[in-house]
Write a protein that binds this DNA or RNA. Sequence first.
DNA 1: ATTAAATAGTGAGGTAGATCACAGGGTATG
DNA 2: CATACCCTGTGATCTACCTCACTATTTAAT
Lengths: 187, 187
Amino acid sequence: MLETLRNHIEKIVPLTDHEFSFVLTQFTVEKFKKNEFLFQCGENVPYAYYVESGLLKLVYTDDRANEHIVSFAMEDWWESDFHAYFHQTPASMSLQCLEDTTVFCISPEGYQQLCREVPKMESFLLQKSNAGFIGAQQRILSLLTTNAKERYEQLIQQYPTLAQRVSKAQLAAYLGVSRETLSRFYS
Amino acid sequence: MLETLRNHIEKIVPLTDHEFSFVLTQFTVEKFKKNEFLFQCGENVPYAYYVESGLLKLVYTDDRANEHIVSFAMEDWWESDFHAYFHQTPASMSLQCLEDTTVFCISPEGYQQLCREVPKMESFLLQKSNAGFIGAQQRILSLLTTNAKERYEQLIQQYPTLAQRVSKAQLAAYLGVSRETLSRFYS
DNA sequence: ATTAAATAGTGAGGTAGATCACAGGGTATG
DNA sequence: CATACCCTGTGATCTACCTCACTATTTAAT
């Protein structure tokens, strides 16, 4: 199981056994049941999470109690409310399990420590962050340029497994469309 | 003028004179006139840009020739088509001047070099990238949760100067709303 | 096994915003 | 100074999508 994290990192930077054992000291492992919260809106955000197995949603609930899914996080993805995490402010979103999930957790101090002690990890995190930024910008572009039906088709093409793992209502909340409208797309 | 870049970096990490002079070796300075392109969709993306003065738009043109503005870049901002830049693939967007603009340019090799030779610069770039990611995610949230009028009001509150520097049509292309609809918001 | 609770489909009606068409004012260029 | 072009506002019509209401079906809980 620790190998999952190591393989993930070594896709980008090779690590010595010694380096990896230091990396491990900065992480803890936690398990959550379906529907449990890793943190909730308004709370402190103690960790950033690497998903070893399972599925999470990063979700914002607006004043009319509508849920909007900012991001899903499946195996091999990193997730948190990064604004709240880095600035140590209350979460503006919640992070919740859509399935039973196992995560590696790292505190903001652990993150700094890792960057300071293992420069290779800073390279790794920079590449992850750049990739995350590019992905987010592509999502913005998709929201600007395509209608809901096209976004739905893009999504099932890009993440075919996701559509089978989450309810249509969750997909709709991610796509920015109502459950009912989404339902009419494939009928 | 070189001080602009140094001050920008030193807001996050202090640099010795020696370090900064190495940093400078990785950059070139270029000037562009209003409406000029730094690169166009389909072309190679030679640089990432730090805006010393002026204003840029990162823009995607769809199949019906509608422009969609993924991002503006004012003084002190970094901009490029980062996917194309890092992966050395043809640009999917264009970067164009909305005003006469002076930029610092860094090639992908320069970027790598900088990270390798000056670890502090890697920290700097990681913080910038994280901030960029957080910003992009907030824009996604804004597109998911609010209507065009609310997004317009958010924008003029967050970047009051921007609304005075660009045409309403450009604002509309950024907000994801038609020029005509935007016009009706303040009348 | 029975009840309760999610989940998914569908009709009817309403609304935000798009699109098309046109007109007036500003400003750049010869 | 005149012509051309860009920018902005505004009316009229159209459409993608939302909201509300109801039903059917599957899944979870006692």
